[in-house]
Nucleic acid binder design. Structure first.
Lengths: 143, 143
DNA sequence: GTTCAGGGTTCCCTGAGGGAACTCCGACTG
DNA sequence: CAGTCGGAGTTCCCTCAGGGAACCCTGAAC
């Protein structure tokens, strides 16, 4: 499907995949850790990890002489975490309730705790769903 | 789970839900349109639409004296489209290949075709996965 | 009063996910 | 140097969610 959303979902759209990515992001990188933290079945965890490695989002890397492996984010995977960060922003805003957000971000550049915001890469002003028109691009499907 | 990603996935984490949201975003708002465009089974489409309405992301609205309904984004749903926009950005960058992005965004504020960028809401500088520390927030699970 | 179209239900059937047990392999342990 | 440990998967069975196709319901139009 000529749709970057569908293509992205083909990488992280299966159940558990985003949560696996989150865990790797926050430092849970080994099979047993992931399985214990998520409560996912081992079979599915194996499938998902292989898929994410195949797609170049994670790298499987030995960390011992024994057959032990850890999973780390590639550059491609690290950029995918942007999607998770925006999910967090939405969840914090609409689903966190009284208790407030479970996790805060401290921005290295300014040292402040702050939310992430979507901006236009060209002019720097806010850019959300209502602020844009959609145009067919070069990769659009020909009718 | 005290995790805004998991909570957000509880709303749009099921298969098809993000694509339904995308279709509604771009103007496909009726049951038959969605079913035809996505090729999803009618049963699952019914389930997903009900779920999205229950969660306050879509609104089911009659558009005729006959029992005809269209689905439109609520404010909550419109903000959720931010997540899709970032998915598009990642898909355009890593998955579009030679053909280039299938869809372009023209920003109302500046009139330019531009990508979306993640910025710190406090200082305005870029804010990506590697630019932040994670801190426990008020809604964090107590150990 | 029959047809039509949109918007769903119902039915069956297959395949993906959960759970628990099993395997494999290198390193320690006595 | 046999036994055992622990991480990282495999294998097996079983259930339940998703696909497909047919069916139903309703109000308007012919």
């Amino acid at each position: 499907m000529a749709c970057s959303i569908a293509r992205t979902l083909d990488v992280i759209g299966e159940p558990w995949s985003p949560l696996i990515l989150r865990d790797v992001w926050v430092g849970l990188s080994r099979f047993e850790q992931l399985q214990a933290d998520l409560g996912i079945s081992r079979k599915v965890l194996t499938e998902r990890l292989n898929h994410l490695v195949d797609r170049g989002v994670l790298e499987r890397r030995p960390y011992d002489r024994r057959p032990r492996y850890e999973y780390v984010l590639t550059d491609k995977g690290t950029e995918l975490v942007d999607v998770l960060m925006v999910m967090v922003g939405w969840g914090d805003r609409w689903l966190a309730g009284q208790a407030g957000p479970p996790v805060l971000y401290r921005h290295h550049a300014c040292g402040q705790v702050a939310a992430v915001d979507l901006r236009c890469a060209h002019c720097g002003l806010p850019m959300h769903a209502g602020d844009i028109d959609l145009l067919p691009g070069p990769g659009a499907a020909r009718p």
